[in-house]
Design a protein around this nucleic acid. Structure first.
Lengths: 261, 261
DNA sequence: GCTTCAATGCGTACGACGTACCCGGTTCAG
DNA sequence: CTGAACCGGGTACGTCGTACGCATTGAAGC
């Protein structure tokens, strides 16, 4: 099927599983597995062997059960992916217990978005399959909703409308996910092919040199030698600053509009 | 194999095909196919049926030949993807023939990046499989190199170094690709599942309402009703402005550093 | 305590995929 | 004219998600 999409299965079934709404039937033998264990096994397989290697057979083998046994707990692979996504969103470990300290801080929106960006980035390194799953149609599980709630709250002092605040989050999240996806793809390309990044570019070098000498690409030929020696982390840091600087323009615009009211 | 990566095959083989370096053997029957026709057929299949439906069998069927015949022309699916990527980059249709008009324009960097962004966006709509291919390890074909050369040249007047200019391009391209990927995923999710975006959210509504009433997510519960009624095109426009505004900070910084030299 | 019957476990099978291998037919160099 | 090189493509293998069906289990109803 090559799923790799969130919300690709039976939505209401996924939601029931996410929020734990289901009564155990009284008849029949007791189940030998739990949803929790299956989801954890799936995450373990994906962490260790990559998203491409995540299969129902592999997950079952990891648990020491037959493949089809999983289908007693989960409608299919698509729904299992939804559960994995909310699972790694984890119990939000925020500790705002110290009496709402950040509320008055005027620049806190920037810190809030930067923390989110770095959190997503870190999670993508911990679970390299995460940015490879296309999160259209995100299932709203408990962990993700809690994170969203807290983040939107911290954007409140900007005075922006609900739509703008959600758009800001979309832009930051979209950017971070994109760079993270490139990053883990590069790592996995190295494992999959056994060819390092350096070796890959070295393989292109003969053709490149010939083309540079042809005079067809004068600007490329004139580029400094170390032009392409940046890491994905460099792109992340550079781009995060750019995006936040751009969002600052939006926030300041709203601030000016309010004071002139 | 579930390829969906650029540069996943034999790199030097792909390059030879891209740049047309290969002598036709003199012996044996004349080939009934050409690389060109195969690549065009593959693009046609992917355009019409999506990346997931792109298979060697389907491409061969579209050409009316046996599946294995394709392997006389292309080492494998991975290399075929590389050829498709450069093919749709197309002959660059820039017309800077009118005597280098933009060179003096100080804000031209912004127009250049915006044109690129809109070009990528348009291409993603024409070829919905394009943003779904992970472009780690991009193969440098003639069309892509010509586009890069022209773009970097237009960023020259910013006075930024080579690295910064390439980073700027990476950030814009990364952002546009990310939004475009979401956009086409949403479109295809609708086709695949037969469930529209509205129906999807309606399916989540009962659970959402219950959670809103629970008081666990006060900020989400207080959001205005039309908060999530934006399109991907809205995100693209909003985010493009944000990114370009952020890059303006970088460009201005370079300008100030130069004048204070 | 015995019967009933839903629920659990999981083996088998199907149709998709990329492609390795091999064979028969075709065409040109010598 | 002959042999080598090249073309087309059929078959087969191992992968995937999962539909289907069947034996086993164990609590509910009597």
């Amino acid at each position: 099927m090559t799923t790799d999409y969130s919300g690709g299965g039976d939505v209401s079934k996924s939601l029931e599983l996410l929020w734990g709404m289901q009564q155990r039937p009284t008849r029949g033998p007791k189940p030998g597995l739990t949803l929790e264990r299956i989801v954890e096994a799936a995450v373990a397989v994906a962490d260790a062997e990559g998203l491409a290697a995540l299969s129902m057979r592999r997950v079952a083998a990891h648990l020491g059960v037959g493949t089809m046994s999983l289908y007693r707990y989960v409608p299919g692979k698509a729904e299992l992916l939804d559960l994995m996504l909310d699972h790694v969103a984890g119990p939000v470990t925020e500790e705002p217990a110290a009496g709402e300290p950040a509320r008055a801080e005027p620049g806190d929106w920037r810190a809030a978005l930067e923390e989110m960006a770095r959190g997503v980035w870190r999670m993508c390194l911990d679970h390299p399959w995460y940015p490879l799953v296309d999160q259209v149609r995100p299932l709203l599980g408990p962990n993700n909703m809690a994170g969203m709630d807290a983040l939107i709250r911290r954007l409140q002092p900007t005075g922006l409308g609900d739509r703008e605040r959600v758009l800001m989050i979309s832009v930051v999240d979209g950017f971070v996910s994109a760079v993270a996806r490139s990053q883990v793809n590069a790592m996995q390309a190295e494992q999959r092919t056994g060819i390092t990044e350096e070796e890959f570019w070295a393989a292109q070098e003969p053709v490149l040199i010939k083309m540079m000498e042809s005079g067809r690409f004068p600007t490329l030929a004139a580029l400094h030698e170390n032009t392409f020696t940046f890491t994905y982390e460099d792109v992340f840091e550079f781009g995060l600053k750019v995006v936040l600087d751009g969002l600052a323009v939006v926030v300041e615009g709203a601030g000016r509009a309010r004071t002139s009211d």
